[in-house]
Design a binder for these strands. Sequence first.
RNA 1: GGUCCCGUAGCUCAGUUGGAUAGAGCAACAGCCUUCUAAGCUGUGGGUCAUUGGUUCGAAUCCAAUCGGGAUCACCA
Length: 592
Amino acid sequence: MNLEEQLKSAISNGIEKLYNQKPDEKRITFQKTNKDFEGDITIVVFPFTGISKKSPEQTANDIGSYLKDNLEEVENFNVVKGFLNLVISSSFWLEFFNTAAAAERFGFAPANTGKTMMVEYSSPNTNKPLHLGHVRNILLGYSVAEILKANGHRVLKVQVINDRGIHICKSMLAWQKWGNGETPESSGTKGDKLVGKYYVEFDKHYKAEIAELVAKGLPKEEAEKQAPSIIEAQEMLRKWEATDAEVYALWEKMNGWVYSGFDVTYKNLGVDFDKLYYESQTWERGKEEVLKGLEQGIFSRKEGQSVWVDLTKEGLDEKVLLRSDGTSVYMTQDIGTAILRYHDFPDLNGIVYTVGSEQEYHFKVLFLILQKLGFAWAKNCYHLSYGMVDLPSGKMKSREGTVVDADDLMEEMIATAKEISLEKGKADEGADAEELYRMIGMAALKYFILKVDPKKKMLFNPQESIDINGHTGPFIQYTHARIKSLLRRAGDWKLEVRSWKLEILPKEKELLKLIHQFPAVLKEAGEAYSPALLANYIYDLAKEYNQFYHDFPVLKEEDAAKKNFRLQLTELTGKIIDNSLRLLGIQAPEKM
RNA sequence: GGUCCCGUAGCUCAGUUGGAUAGAGCAACAGCCUUCUAAGCUGUGGGUCAUUGGUUCGAAUCCAAUCGGGAUCACCA
């Protein structure tokens, strides 16, 4: 039982004894003690004045006295208006510290809650390279998955790759017509970049054709439909669906290029997947399920072969599930994919879809459809909806060439990290130094993105993102490196000795209090699917440690018990920072 | 137009199961290295928490309206 739970039940009992009525436990709330007053934790007593029929001050005094007499952890208390500030005993903090320091991985839930969660993230189209928007998605998804693991769940990281459809046909067509057999090898271009190049190439020709037709007097809408390029691309898609051998071979070849390009980006981002789903392998399943639903009368048929779901009762619209020519839409394959996933892993306790907020409506509809189809697990599907990433210049627009490429971005971050390191004269030469620059640059990027609440849209300012001072990833890395340096110098100092009698100084206690919060923060981050909570917490922890480090000698402390305590406090802080950074996908260097 | 999200310091963000005088970082200015990593620490200035009204002992937090910004409502993905 943790401190708050202990206090809660003691307060509940105390109020019952004092005033003959049990309070509503939900109204017993704790908060941090204001820094101007003495105390470690504060209880707001206003909610109990109705029961006590006394002034807030008197009520607080009553409860404070009761706690002091009946709970050994409560050493003292003071009252300011309706606020009861409790001073928790040093022995409690020392005992807590002993347990925490001895833990294998303090704050982590014991492995195996018996729950299995699937986290989908990335899920790109295969017609162009990954960009900054994908980067937020990927970092979030990866971190959420790791945080869920730390909370004791089994986690499967997956994506569904949108590998079929008109978009890839456009790239294929352009390559076929104007590519002259160019390959990643022949041109020295990363595969996804090469395919992206032909997607742009298609668009260029298509636009020109439209302009030409419009000049001839055709309305724009009509021109968009009649342009020869688009007609050819649609023809290609039909051939693909009929598994035309030549088209299929080209499709496989070009997707292969894209995958090897993506692999490089994923590797550099330091993320991985347990299983990949491909739209080309799930869309037919989706179609079958829709037709089954049609037979059962869950869906209805309209013009041609089109199939619709009516969600007007749920306050939404009607939605098409199969086109009038019988082909499937995006929704169709998502239905198939979800069902396939539960087929593959029947013991799944939920799927987390890491997808941008612009698709909120889509997922609302998807989950409703799955429910209508009778899948009880649909209620465990969750759309982790994150906000868009804007640039200082506004929105990213591929047409205006303002899209920030993921590979370029990483390269620049690392180059800038190197530059700054050299300027500061921190540079060691050699291979290790290059690895360090990479770690720092990536930390700056990842932390900059992950510290923001996923639900909120964020502004990506390239200049600020590589900052290494203040509320940044490198600042936290630096604190860790500093801790490691201390521990190295401590050498074989007897870290295992844990029986001390000493008074904890205020600054030491502040650090301990923050450490005490860690398990709750990790749990909350898992429940809220929010790496930002963890990211902001370790910043606070690092900041607090730096103050401690600045104010007190550790190795130079002469009192052996104090020295030992501070060293272990240092070690524990370092472990929490290291473990937490890892959950954010950030590496913690030993030196920097 | 319907639905949803957002509006906190010059800038980027915390803080929202309702609680004390709303916090950080950046930027600006002023200090601290013969002592464990100065990528650090300390201090100063900077706020009608978009506006108005309501609920409450108490509102940045809950409710309503207004203003401003964004997303979405395709036989696109």
